[in-house]
Write a protein that binds this DNA or RNA. Sequence first.
DNA 1: CCGTTGACTTCCT
DNA 2: CAGGAAGCCAACG
Length: 110
Amino acid sequence: MQNAFFERVYQIVREIPKGKVTTYSAISEYLTGTKRSARMVGWAMNASHTVYPPVPAHRVVNKNGLLTGFRHFATPTQMQERLEAEGIIVKNLQIQDFEKHFWHPNEMIL
DNA sequence: CCGTTGACTTCCT
DNA sequence: CAGGAAGCCAACG
């Protein structure tokens, strides 16, 4: 609770299992209770490059399973390539079988 | 201090 | 179905 919003976002994202993905809204809803603040999660991701250990931001996508943040990576294709390297099929920035790869933040507590 | 922007979501036209 | 606008909160100039 005393952890800052950003820190908690980082912690959750770092706990995302390999081959799984989550959404901004899911994290936002899990932390703040409202999915309206999903932008803050994105903002946290923007600062994720300044923290250590690095946050696997490529496992965080929008609610549609769309790789909206791909342009913030070193290369526009890195996000997709990393996901595919983990067994996630990505077609035109859209995760295939997104529901099957979806991971809820609540799982990290278990 | 105030206006703009942003890796989102949802509603409205 | 596609595009625009509003709501959200925090950081930046």
